[in-house]
C-alpha cells in the first residue's frame, strides 16, 4: 500500500468561529502503480490531505502512512521517495537558472553525478526544457516554469508523485504536453500518481481512479466512467449542419459510441463539423454533492 489513511482528520481553529473540519475521517487506500485523481470543490480539503500525506501538517486525529512510512516521524526518508508539485508554489530558486536548481536538488537528494546527469537529461528531453535551462526561473513563462517544477519534483525518481493542481493556468497545448509526459513517465517507471485538479481533461487523460472529496469527507471512490454513470453525466455531440444550424445531442457514453450517434445524425442531415463536449468536472462534482444530501 503506497497511501493508507485511517480516519484521517484535520481541524483548523478559527478566531471567534467554530473550528473548521478541513479533512473529516478520511479512509483512503492506494496501491503502488495506481493513478488517482483527487477532486472536489474549492476548500473541500484536497491540499490539506496532501500536506498530511507529506508530513507538512500534523493530523488532528487518525493516522496516515505514505510509502509505508510515518510522514511525521520519517519525513526525511519519505522526502526521498515522494515528489510533490504544488501548482501554486515554486520549489525552484527564483534567481537561479533552472539548470542550477537541478544541480542543487541533485545534491540535496544525494544523487551521484552519473545518476543526476542521466535523469536530468531524460527530463530535459521529455519535458523540452533545453531552450530555457540557463534562464533564471523568475523569467520563465508559467508553462515553462511548471515543466521545470515537474522536472524538479521528479529528479530523484520518486515512487509516488503528488501533483496539486499541476495544470492550473496552462494553455491547452501546455496542458496536453504535461499530461503526455506524465503518462509516458508512468509507463516507463511505474510511478504511482495522485493529482488534484479542477480540469476534467487531466482526470480523463491520466487517472484510472477518482476520489471525490466533499467537505473533507470521501463522497466517491471508483472509476471515472463509474462516476459519470453514478451522476448520469453525459457527453454531448455537437454537430454543425449543412443548413448552418448547430445541434447538441447528449448521449450516454456507456451505452452508445460517439460514432454511432454521429452515424445516426448523418442519416438525417449533412454534418459539416463536429465536436464532443465532455462532462464538466465541476458539474459532476456538484451532482455528487446534491445526490449525497
Amino acid at each position: 500500500m503506497i497511501i493508507e489513511t485511517d480516519q484521517l482528520t484535520r481541524e483548523f481553529k478559527r478566531r471567534g468561529k467554530p473550528k473548521l473540519v478541513a479533512v473529516d475521517h478520511l479512509d483512503i487506500r492506494v496501491e503502488p502503480g495506481e493513478t488517482v485523481g483527487y477532486i472536489g470543490a474549492n476548500g473541500a480539503g484536497k491540499s490539506t490531505t496532501i500536506k498530511m500525506l507529506t508530513g507538512i501538517l500534523v493530523p488532528t486525529s487518525g493516522s496516515v502512512r505514505t510509502c509505508g512510512l510515518d510522514p511525521l516521524k520519517q519525513r526525511r526518508e519519505l522526502a526521498r521517495r515522494v515528489g510533490v508539485v504544488f501548482g501554486q508554489r515554486s520549489q525552484l530558486w527564483w534567481d537561479l537558472p533552472t539548470a542550477e536548481s537541478f544541480t542543487i536538488l541533485g545534491a540535496i537528494h544525494h544523487l551521484g553525478r552519473t545518476e543526476l546527469t542521466a535523469r536530468r537529461d531524460e527530463l530535459v528531453e521529455q519535458l523540452e526544457l533545453g531552450e530555457f535551462l540557463s534562464t533564471p526561473v523568475r523569467q520563465l513563462s508559467l508553462g515553462q516554469r511548471m515543466r521545470a517544477e515537474v522536472a524538479a519534483a521528479l529528479l530523484h525518481s520518486p515512487q509516488l508523485i503528488i501533483l496539486d493542481e499541476p495544470t492550473i493556468g496552462l494553455d491547452v497545448l501546455s496542458k496536453q504536453r504535461l499530461r503526455d509526459f506524465l503518462v509516458a513517465e508512468r509507463r516507463r517507471h511505474g510511478t504511482t500518481l495522485l493529482l488534484t485538479t479542477h480540469d476534467m481533461g487531466d482526470i480523463e487523460r491520466l487517472c484510472e481512479r477518482v476520489l471525490v472529496v466533499d467537505h473533507g469527507r470521501l463522497a466517491y471512490d471508483g472509476s471515472l466512467a463509474g462516476l459519470s454513470r453514478t451522476v448520469g453525466a453525459q457527453r454531448v455531440l455537437v454537430v454543425d449542419l449543412a443548413d448552418g444550424t448547430r445541434q447538441r445531442i447528449p448521449f450516454d457514453a456507456e451505452k452508445v459510441t460517439a460514432a454511432t450517434v454521429l452515424a445516426q445524425a448523418s442519416e438525417r442531415a449533412e454534418v459539416r463539423d463536429l465536436s464532443i463536449e465532455e462532462p464538466d468536472i465541476e458539474d459532476v462534482v456538484r451532482r455528487i454533492y446534491s445526490a449525497a444530501r
Binding site: 507529506t54 507538512i56 526525511r76 522526502a79 515522494v82 515554486s90 520549489q91 537528494h109
Partner: peptide, 8 residues
C-alpha cells in the same frame, strides 16, 4: 512547505 519536502 517546500522545505518540508526535502530530505534534510
Amino acid at each position: 512547505d517546500v522545505f518540508y519536502l526535502r530530505p534534510q
